[in-house]
Design a protein around this nucleic acid. Structure first.
Lengths: 220, 220
DNA sequence: TGTACATCAGTGAACGCGCGTTCACTGATGTAC
DNA sequence: TGTACATCAGTGAACGCGCGTTCACTGATGTAC
């Protein structure tokens, strides 16, 4: 917004987008480590050599995709763990947001799930870094939540990581439901499952400081 | 054990093992969808064409690896969720078993984590199937546990899936600790984190049926 | 036990193909005056 | 506003290379008598 791009820059951005979009689509059926440069340029409708004007390699393009897929997610995270409403409302809102995000950006979600443990190190590290940032942000959000009042920062981060992982698990279940079949009951099943798992975690959270020693070390 | 293999069968098994082992090693640095047949046979020390005597494709080899990596894990699952000992002992035992398994079979663990959401459909489905079996077995084990007495089968399965996913998350954290650096404190950090997450889940589990409605629908 | 034949795991040459990368280029866009 | 020159995103030919797959083969192992 700071200044209008020249026609040259604008065209370059357009080609870059075409490359990213083509890659994302091709990655629905394979992993980044087998994605070919020529394959991407062919799908994007440019010459193979044009690729190098934008990325050094497909791994480099992968890192850009990670930032695109996860970078824009930070505002949503805050909403997801927002302290507004009672426990049950918050869970329903979080699950709904996850389902909605998967519906809106299925290819991004698939890409992250796939490359989080994928075969391309720089991409894996970019995912890990972004997820660590998420966990940090969730941890901060928990600090302002009465339910985790009095928790150590360590404990808050522990719970935050549990939430982030649970979010990813749920997202990839929604994704499977989305692509495997058009049966809406599968989606409903995932919603029910994720809701109850979050409920159970929420109960553990509310009782975390109970018992003689606190910090979860309560008697059975 | 039923009958001794002939020399021919024995040699064939040896070559098959060499192919599987070579593939597993090559997969430390890439995904199955980019693994080449010639690459595998070269590493295994056989001619490219020998591959076809054992597998139809690298995807087929991948499915065999899934069965090898997860098939042998079923007995361990039972021990992991065994009801023996108090809550804290059970958690320590489970985390210890996971850490030990990662130490003993790092390549298998990496393979499963990577291909669970990887780019090769038949392999992904084989992983999903095995994990569903695990969840089923854990659910059964929970049925015989006083802590989940009175739970519906649906609720038991919900918790079982949470445990299975948590097991995989923990395993891949141990794996990262194993390969990233030789710092033993990282391993300790993962142990602490996983232990506390299981504690929190355990607390949620013990209070699941509390409250007016039960089934986690208790008041805040 | 010895012989003749069948099986079949592994070989090696050959194939056509798509890959990543290099290079000199083109021509539209941008800039200086 | 017009002109001369610089920039640089995208092109297209060319390269050497490793890929998956086919095919007819070899020779050790297995089997029948």
């Amino acid at each position: 917004m700071s200044h209008t791009l020249g026609a040259r820059q604008a065209q370059k951005q357009k080609t870059r987008r075409a490359l990213l979009d083509a890659a994302l689509e091709l990655l629905e059926g394979q992993s980044l480590s087998s994605l070919g440069l020529r394959e991407v340029t062919r799908a994007a409708g440019v010459a193979p050599t044009a690729f190098y004007r934008h990325f050094r390699s497909t791994a480099d393009l992968g890192v850009a995709l990670v930032e695109e897929a996860l970078g824009s997610l930070h505002p949503m995270i805050r909403t997801t763990v927002s302290a507004a409403g009672d426990s049950e409302e918050r869970i329903a809102r979080a699950v709904g947001l996850i389902a909605g995000h998967v519906d809106a950006y299925p290819a991004h979600v698939r890409f992250i799930a796939r490359e989080r443990h994928g075969g391309v190190r720089p991409v894996r590290e970019a995912v890990r870094e972004q997820l660590a940032r998420f966990a940090g942000e969730v941890g901060e959000a928990l600090a302002g939540d009465p339910v985790s009042a009095g928790w150590s920062e360590d404990d808050r981060l522990m719970l935050a990581q549990l939430y982030v992982d649970q979010m990813l698990v749920t997202a990839s279940l929604f994704l499977e439901a989305l692509e495997a079949d058009a049966d809406p009951r599968e989606r409903e099943r995932v919603t029910r499952l994720a809701t109850r798992q979050l409920r159970l975690i929420g109960i553990g959270r509310r009782h975390w400081l109970d018992g003689p020693a606190g910090g979860g070390r309560s008697a059975p």
